[in-house]
Design a binder for these strands. Sequence first.
DNA 1: CCTTTATACTTGAGAACGCAAGGATCATAG
DNA 2: CTATGATCCTTGCGTTCTCAAGTATAAAGG
Lengths: 141, 141
Amino acid sequence: MRFLRAHAALTRELSSRLEAVHELTLSDFDVLVQLYYAEGRRMRRIDLARSVLLTASGITRLLDGLESCGLVGKERCDSDARVTYAVLTKAGVRKIEEARESHLADIEELFGSRFSPDEREQLAELLGRLPLAHTAEACSE
Amino acid sequence: MRFLRAHAALTRELSSRLEAVHELTLSDFDVLVQLYYAEGRRMRRIDLARSVLLTASGITRLLDGLESCGLVGKERCDSDARVTYAVLTKAGVRKIEEARESHLADIEELFGSRFSPDEREQLAELLGRLPLAHTAEACSE
DNA sequence: CCTTTATACTTGAGAACGCAAGGATCATAG
DNA sequence: CTATGATCCTTGCGTTCTCAAGTATAAAGG
């Protein structure tokens, strides 16, 4: 119960701020961050999907949006014609670096006031046990 | 990050089980539980909306569905003609009692294996601090 | 009274997502 | 080489939800 409530309240708040300032969905942001930390700032679409817990079709449409904004591009894979890479463009890098800043500030505001560093640590650890071993490394948001 | 991932994985799992067995959305279930524990098993629609963190329009449509299944009914309010109550029907009570059981088992399966009672307590406490003081009492799911 | 403002609810339009189905490509075993 | 099966991606369709706008009622002040 608490979990569902907390999530609903939190995402609503963060999402609306992100959207107001940067015109990005939380999912958009999530994808951009994943790409930002990926090697060469590019990932196979399917891996991207799995790492942000969307379906393949979800990623297709989300990336369609980001492409038409010029934040990411496509690249073919030489060794396997089935896969397409999503690559962060220069504009995408700029965007995420801007958005990251304000987003972290938002998070700090919401979490910092309610939890001590220790508690944050604890919360992260506990939550980390939940999903069935999904990616999400190399990032501390 | 962990929070978003955990939520996505968890709700997907719980939601699909609930839907497979009882043909209920997590939101549906949530609303039914709220009503189940409410005085007289009825609530003003607006209070219901707030307690499950949906908008007014969200509740209207969700209840439309539950009404057409015969799980809840409407009742007018004598003292204020603006408000409508949502009331759990007999069928609704039966439904929620059934669903509750399997849902709790699902939760037990997902949480029980990963957390000790102490840790569960802790997690609940930490999460409880997040939303801006929203209802959700009288229930331990 | 009558106006203003706030509240409860509904409705239309649209965004975000999942699922299922289809097309293309790869890989493997006859 | 071909058949079978798996993987990656896209597309059509439906669901859930939000936001904005509209209706109806209430409450409070001139």
